[in-house]
Design a protein around this nucleic acid. Structure first.
Lengths: 207, 207
DNA sequence: CGATCCGTCTACCAAGTGGTAGAGAGATGG
DNA sequence: CCATCTCTCTACCACTTGGTAGACGGATCG
């Protein structure tokens, strides 16, 4: 039935990991139902039954993928949040990381989009995983407001705004790609600058 | 083979229209590949073959749906843009309309998301349809900058920012829904206020 | 060496997929 | 009243889907 949990043992990429990685990419870009187990297997050079050996069903593979993606997102976020920076410098650092993640691993944000579909049974799973990180971010904003570095407002609300803005910009890079305009590094950097200026004005400048 | 174009004749809801409407809703919320012709037909109380009579293939139905959605989006936008307002008042009006559309017909933005997937063959189609409206909006921004009502910057870039921000907020309402928190009217209004303040500061206030 | 376990495979299967062929019912019009 | 056209249907079909059953080979271990 396959190992249920991988106890972070120092092994090279196992079959299970390869499946997870490929599934994350496929589900994140093409979507869950557009990705068949057969296609996934062929892409990996294995048989579908090997996938079903490690993950009892397609749905359970999806859930494992969600956990995997959540871990990546949380790791990236924590990395950016553990610098000890404050105020806009911290926000800027996080934006830098998130956008870099959006460019390097677009499938991650794609998966978030896929999961946040209305009626998605797995939305709750991702939300659960990410909730603590979300709470910590809200705390940070709250502290910064107390310190007078950010204009006062409701932290959760503000966080939702930040989330939607940053994800919006990240998604916009995908739109550019959809238009056929491959987003160059230069364009991405320009967009980030603009976004940061945008946020600085909204977050810290007095009305 | 079914009529190719509907010459805007004043008829009550035809079978073709009913199919289009249901398909837009299904593709926009569940996605293209997650929606089978059989499921669509059953939901409409007809047979799959009736759908295939009006639309020769699933792909062509999708394209018709895209055109339909584009028309709705353009109509809503033009309505908001034909008020003769200027500056932030105009922007605010458009945001009001877009967010209302996002709440009332979430499937529309869902379809946009679905189409803007990387590798989507239909992305170009939607972009084509929307391009003129996009150009007109950029012109508007340009004129407002000339008139000194908006801070000067690259109109297309700014438009992309506005697009991503507004769509981000709209998508965020979906995230709220995914979390289980049904977005009340009050919350939606608050979010819009915040967004407008956000944009006002970024668009018109001097740095 | 023999028994057991692990990982991948071949061989199937029932259900669902998009799509074809064509019958039949009703309206329309010469 | 017959011919034609429009629309929806039944009957199929080839292929793909997720999933089951179990064989096979290699490693591990008593």
């Amino acid at each position: 039935m396959g190992r249920v949990t991988d106890t972070a043992a120092p092994e090279r990429t196992t079959t299970r990991d390869r499946i997870l990685t490929a599934a994350l990419a496929a589900y994140g870009t093409d979507g869950y139902s557009a990705t068949s187990l057969d296609a996934l297997a062929e892409q990996l050079g294995i048989r579908k039954q090997t996938i079903l050996y490690w993950f009892p069903s397609k749905q359970e593979l999806f859930e494992a993928v969600i956990d995997d993606a959540a871990a990546s997102l949380i790791e990236a976020f924590d990395m950016a949040a553990s610098t000890g920076l404050t105020g806009m410098a911290q926000v800027e650092e996080i934006i830098r990381r998130v956008l870099r993640l959006a460019v390097r691993r677009p499938e991650l944000l794609g998966l978030v989009r896929e999961v946040s579909r209305p009626g998605s049974l797995s939305a709750a799973r991702l939300v659960d995983r990410v909730a603590p990180t979300f709470a910590r971010a809200a705390d940070f904003l709250s502290r910064e407001m107390d310190a007078g570095r950010f204009r006062r407002s409701d932290p959760s609300m503000l966080l939702l705004s930040l989330y939607s803005t940053v994800v919006g910009v990240a998604g916009e890079l995908e739109v550019q790609r959809a238009i056929g305009l491959e987003p160059t590094l230069r364009v991405a950097v320009m967009r980030r600058r603009e976004l940061v200026r945008f946020l600085r004005v909204a977050l810290v400048e007095p009305i």
